[in-house]
Design a protein around this nucleic acid. Structure first.
Lengths: 215, 215
DNA sequence: TCATGAAGCGGAACCTATTCCGTTTTCGTG
DNA sequence: CACGAAAACGGAATAGGTTCCGCTTCATGA
């Protein structure tokens, strides 16, 4: 089971926290120590319960109880259930972002745009598949909410940039379209309702990425 | 305001009705007359309230009350709120299906596969944009539920077929990917959060469809 | 150290979608 | 027409996400 580093794994994935974004925008005044501690307790509790009972069957009440806090605290810290999922996803997303921004080619800098894009698509699909339940939950938020998360903005910018370098028309819209094909719902559908394996999926997606890179 | 033909506009768009599918599969025994009448009353009431107050702010209770039936009747007839939306969408979807299957080219038969596909994509995007609120609601159902609707199956089959004729690799996955780019959430995002106009969107989507048609 | 106001807390209350189940209506049969 | 089973009904009850608000704790600075 993955470690989400108890105390400060918190989020850097934005989510649009009600109080202050913590990581999304520049740091303001320091948060109160009890608040930080509670966020950590909540993330631990959520991870534990999600792993044990499945994301869908864990209620916010249950998470609050397991963490030893009130539900109000959950909502102040994460906004809603989807936000909690995004925060849990944060750790792994950051790892992938790292590789994408400064890791070795073809995912990282140094390869041809099209190759970087196909590497991104394959890697991201794998990330989604690995964390399917959490991704599905995170994309459950109000329609369009996911587009506003800091994490998503990064994926989009990256794709747009690569498409742009490759000379593709409408790089912005194509970036969004590509990411739409990488939604949890889509991957879940291919994986579970059409019994495709991840390799098939990433191959096909890489092909699409290549096709969309073309002028 | 659109007429949903009071009595029998019902659905032919499937939705996975709890009791019997009514139109999805071959007709079984005839439904009870009171049930048919109630479905009509519900559709009328829903359309009226949705138009007046906005889809999001209309509760199932309110629809039931306006229709003069109990909530149980709503759920027996449409499964859930998303199902109700799908049923309301049905009318216009059927019109588009008609054009797509037997209308004039390039949407209908007779044109090159790629041209038919771009026509489909543009037309479908327009349909979604026109009915944005209902589409968003209909896609709110349990993750993946939309892939199981009869309507969606038809769109997918059509795209897959055209992509296949055009010689594209992985026509099935590409069809799904194309439809993912046509989701209500995606179109809404482009339209409202990026102030694109429909023409821009359909142009870009048509370009993508063309790119994806390529071997 | 103490006062003070902001930040955070807990958990009851709220709002809705959805389910359940006892009652009523239909419809085919005898 | 009368019956009985099946199909529908209605609306109270349930469940779980989210909001609200009075109370506590922390951080600051005098």
């Amino acid at each position: 089971m993955k470690e989400v580093s108890g105390t400060d794994s918190a989020l850097s994935t934005g989510v649009s926290l009600p109080v202050h974004g913590q990581g999304e925008a520049g740091a303001e005044r320091s948060r109160r120590v009890d608040a930080v501690r509670n966020q950590g307790k909540v993330l631990d509790a959520a991870e534990r319960l999600f792993a044990r009972d499945g994301v869908e069957r864990v209620t916010m009440q249950a998470v609050a109880k397991e963490a030893g806090v009130g539900v109000g605290t959950l909502y102040r810290g994460f906004g809603n259930k989807a936000g909690l999922a995004m925060a849990l996803l944060g750790e792994r997303e950051r790892q992938f972002q790292e590789l994408m921004i400064s890791g070795p080619p073809p995912l990282g800098p140094g390869a041809e745009p099209t190759d970087r894009l196909t590497a991104f698509v394959a890697g991201y699909a794998e990330l989604v598949a690995d964390q399917l339940e959490l991704v599905l939950l995170s994309q459950t938020a109000a329609p369009g909410a996911r587009f506003r998360s800091g994490a998503h903005a990064l994926w989009r910018t990256h794709c747009r940039h690569l498409l742009s370098l490759a000379g593709a028309p409408s790089p912005e819209l194509r970036a969004d379209a590509l990411l739409a094909a990488l939604s949890g719902e889509m991957i879940a559908h291919w994986l579970t309702e059409q019994d495709r394996n991840l390799a098939e999926i990433t191959d096909a997606l890489a092909g699409m990425a290549r096709a969309l890179s073309t002028k």
